[in-house]
Nucleic acid binder design. Structure first.
Length: 498
DNA sequence: CCTTGCATTAATCAATTCAG
DNA sequence: CTGAATTGATTAATGCAAGG
């Protein structure tokens, strides 16, 4: 821009000089026929010489300006080339690095543009993302060194953490110790995850606004009063939840709730049956939209990114009225292992555990790494049985001890334990037999337990249980309908399509 | 019936130290 | 040097309270 302005100025200047030159030439011409007197006194001659001199100067000037103009032209071309180079490199980045620039197209009001916006983060390149990851790792290293070098101070804080119940919270000094202890703990792990039920005991004696940020997940299933203690201790709060999931169950009697409302003059929406942390956060959110039912939803997220298709469809059917949109439209794997037996301990069926152990062993054999999988069950008795059986079997098969321990400790558990987590592969072991059918009915009485179990699986989902008995039950029915195939291990893996 | 977290105790395992 | 004893750490088992 600047360069162009300068060029323009130069053109004007050159034109001015050329005009001057023309005028001089004309004057020179008219003067070139000297009169008699002039010839005598040489006055004209002097004037002529003078003018000739002037003309020469102007011609020089014009030449200089022209030279400068050429120079500028060259530079301008150079800059244009450079500009093109940068443009090309940005375009390349867009193509190779997944960089999305929000131009006019990006904001178009069409379905495809909407989906594109939901699926892509603007201004982010793969490289930047990668470097950010590396930076995080470096940060973790620094953090680790910090912890190592301050081992002694940290150790005493950790001891205090274990014995914090021995503190006398009526003494100001003890309360101060507690504060400092939590300060150190938060330094070690800046993020602490817990449940509302345990905030009361865990952060007992910790005062108002001590926590910088409180993130509430699954807020649709918590009553506002459950969150009160955590909210009071926090400066800022981010609430994440799913309003289409089941509402929290309020155990307080309706009339008592009414009395509380009347006595304190509280609006209905704060304490109504069915109001949750999520519904209050939605109400407070200026950004959002109304759904079909006329509910105000704060900043809705419509794209499901975790699961591939059989799992997504099952969850969409049983929990989301088929309203969600799938981000990665790829097909995963899913099978129903029709495996039944007698429940030996409450709902635990040994045959199912043996089957899962063999499956895990095969997965391990193929990769020789700890496979990324969860074994999920609705019942603790089944969880314990699975842990024991699988640990024993894998040890027999000479799987390295460390892998076995890690796997049994962190990859086998109840549905509740795995809420908010994910793995490539999930084995959902239902357990139960004829005599414990009530427990099976309990597990599918609401969609959320099965919804959580199914949506933990990113790529592959296998359900292990009595097909004939379970597939007739609500919610299990959806799994039976969408699963790729039913496998009956007893009959030599003969398969049939549903 | 079912879950969770928390506290306590028993059991198991690995590493280190010690006696002969 | 070798096997036994000690120690420290983790894991399993159990009971309890709170809650659906």
């Amino acid at each position: 821009m600047l360069l162009e302005a300068e060029q323009e100025k130069l053109v004007l200047k050159t034109a001015h000089y050329k005009q001057q030159k023309r005028l001089l030439e004309r004057e020179f011409h008219t003067l070139s026929k000297p009169t008699f007197f002039q010839r005598i006194f040489h006055t004209k001659r002097n004037k002529l010489l003078q003018m000739e001199d002037q003309l020469q100067k102007i011609t020089m000037k014009i030449k200089n300006e022209e030279k400068e103009w050429d120079l500028l032209q060259m530079r301008s071309n150079q800059i244009r080339m450079e500009l093109k180079k940068y443009r090309d490199s940005i375009n390349n980045k867009c193509k190779n690095q997944g960089l999305v620039i929000p131009d006019d197209n990006y904001w178009t009001n069409s379905q495809s543009a909407y989906e594109y916006r939901q699926l892509h983060t603007p201004w982010l390149t793969d490289e930047l993302n990668f470097e950010r990851g590396l930076l995080f790792l470096k940060g973790m290293k620094v953090h680790k060194l910090f912890l190592i070098f301050n081992y002694k101070a940290i150790k005493s804080s950790l001891r205090l953490l274990n014995y914090r119940s021995k503190l006398d919270l009526n003494q100001t000094e003890h309360r101060m110790w507690l504060q400092h202890m939590w300060g150190v703990i938060h330094l070690i792990t800046p993020v602490i995850s817990t449940t509302f039920a345990s905030v009361r005991t865990m952060y007992k004696g910790v005062g108002r606004d001590f926590i910088r940020y409180l993130f509430i997940d699954e807020a649709g299933q918590a009553t506002p009063q459950q969150a009160a203690g955590a909210l009071w201790r926090s400066q800022k709060v981010v609430v994440v939840g799913d309003p289409i999931q089941i509402e929290p169950v309020v155990t307080i009697d309706r009339t008592i709730l009414g009395d509380i409302k009347k006595f304190y003059g509280i609006e209905d929406r704060f304490i109504e049956i069915g109001s949750s942390v999520q519904s209050l956060a939605d109400a407070a959110n200026p950004f959002g939209m109304y759904n079909n039912k006329g509910q105000w939803i704060g900043i809705p997220l419509w794209v499901h990114r975790r699961c591939l298709n059989p799992m997504f469809t099952i969850a969409n059917q049983i929990a989301y009225d088929n309203k969600m949109v799938l981000a990665i439209k790829k097909q995963g794997k899913s099978e129903w292992f029709d495996c039944k037996g007698v429940a030996v301990n409450k709902q635990f069926v040994k045959e199912q555990a043996d089957l899962v152990a063999e499956e895990i062993y095969q997965k391990w054999e193929n990769t020789l790494n700890a496979p990324d999988l969860y074994v999920i069950t609705p019942f603790t008795a089944v969880k314990d049985g699975l842990r024991k059986t699988i640990k024993k079997r894998l040890a027999e098969l000479n799987v390295p001890k460390k892998i076995v321990n890690d796997l049994t400790r962190s990859s086998i558990g109840t549905t509740h334990t795995f809420q908010g987590k994910e793995a490539d592969t999930v084995y959902f072991v239902v357990g139960t037999d004829q005599n414990s059918d009530g427990a099976a009915n309990w597990s599918c009485s609401k969609p959320n337990l099965i919804n959580v179990a199914v949506t933990r699986a990113k790529k592959e989902f296998y359900i292990v249980g009595d097909y004939d008995r379970l597939s007739k039950k609500q919610n299990y029915k959806s799994i039976a309908e969408n699963v790729d195939q039913v496998i009956r291990p007893n009959t030599n893996r003969s398969t049939f399509h549903v």
